[in-house]
């Protein structure tokens, strides 16, 4: 079959294998070693690695340049783009530059509002929204046109991703929103962290009812929890994440919270593998990337397919 971009991630997903991706946060500085160290660690256990774009509205090295560093190490990067900081001109020119450097997986996001980050007085851009971003990228790829309608010279082969939050309110509307992202052109979806598998399964059922799992690849999101404090913090303060009380209680009762956190993560993966329409997992081990190889190994997802 003809590939949209022919990235490793696309090939793995098209082969029907259960994909594994992970997230790597770039450096809070200009050093290359931070992202490179994470890249070396993740390379053997992931099909692609996402690089966040000023995540939580906190300034870091750009996703774009960190992706170039990962690409040099032989990884398949997923460049995240948020619509908070750049308008349609800046985004399109960054996309052209990224493709030129071999970065062809792009994840489209709204981005956390600047008011909750480290430059709360900044002007938010929000020229386009995440769905319009997906559509714009699809137009660049399939019609070879900029958003304004002008021709682009040459191909822009990209594999377009989007996020989905199965837990954000209002629940009933969430599938409609996914449908909209798929209609706009999302080739793959990475979900928000899943702690409530039952609720996620219900969402997936609604997704299947609409046949959306056949039109896009859904990767289920995971965040391994390091401590009780982290669980509480995510529950109360991290926008869009839903941590049920049972998870907090379970960690509180555990002798070793770290081990328990990994155990929860592994149990979740086993359950996710059983849900029809889930094509892989996306591990967001915030400041705990070194655990990812262990998790993937324990989940019996090694070695990664060579496609």
């Amino acid at each position: 079959m003809t590939m949209k971009a022919g990235t490793n991630l696309e090939k793995v997903l098209e082969s029907g294998a259960f994909a594994v991706t992970a997230e790597a946060g770039p450096a809070k500085g200009a050093v290359t070693s931070v992202i490179e160290r994470k890249g070396e660690m993740l390379k053997p256990c992931c099909d692609a690695v996402n690089v966040t774009d000023n995540q939580s509205a906190v300034v870091r090295m750009s996703s774009w340049s960190s992706c170039v560093l990962l690409k040099r190490l032989g990884l398949d990067p997923v460049m995240q783009i948020v619509v908070r900081d750049r308008n349609r001109l800046a985004i399109q020119s960054d996309v052209l530059g990224a493709v030129a450097m071999g970065i062809q997986n792009i994840l489209c996001l709204s981005g956390d509002h600047q008011a909750i980050g480290n430059h709360p007085d900044a002007k938010g851009v929000y020229d386009i929204d995440s769905i319009q971003l997906i559509q714009m990228l699809k137009g660049m790829r399939d019609e070879k046109k900029f958003q304004c309608g002008e021709e682009i010279s040459g191909e822009v082969p990209i594999f377009i991703g989007a996020a989905a939050n199965p837990f954000a309110a209002p629940f009933e509307y969430r599938v409609l929103r996914l449908a909209k992202k798929v209609k706009a052109g999302a080739d793959f979806i990475q979900t928000q962290a899943i702690f409530d598998v039952a609720k996620f399964a219900k969402w997936m059922e609604m997704v299947r009812d609409r046949g959306l799992d056949k039109q896009t690849h859904i990767l289920a999101g995971l965040v391994p929890i390091k401590s009780v404090g982290m669980a509480r913090y995510m529950k109360d303060y991290v926008s869009g994440v839903y941590v049920p009380d049972e998870v907090v209680t379970r960690l509180e009762g555990a002798k070793n919270a770290k081990e328990e956190g990994i155990k929860i993560c592994l149990e979740t993966i086993e359950q996710l593998k059983e849900i029809q329409g889930v094509h892989g997992i996306h591990i967001m081990a915030v400041a705990w990337e070194e655990m990812v190889p262990h998790i993937v190994e324990q989940a019996k997802l090694l070695p990664r397919p060579v496609v």
Binding site: V83, Y126, A163, N165, A168
Partner: peptide
């Protein structure tokens, strides 16, 4: 965020 196509993931 002046979104036109529905809520962001942060709506809780």
């Amino acid at each position: 965020k002046h979104l036109l196509n529905g809520p962001c993931g942060g709506s809780q």
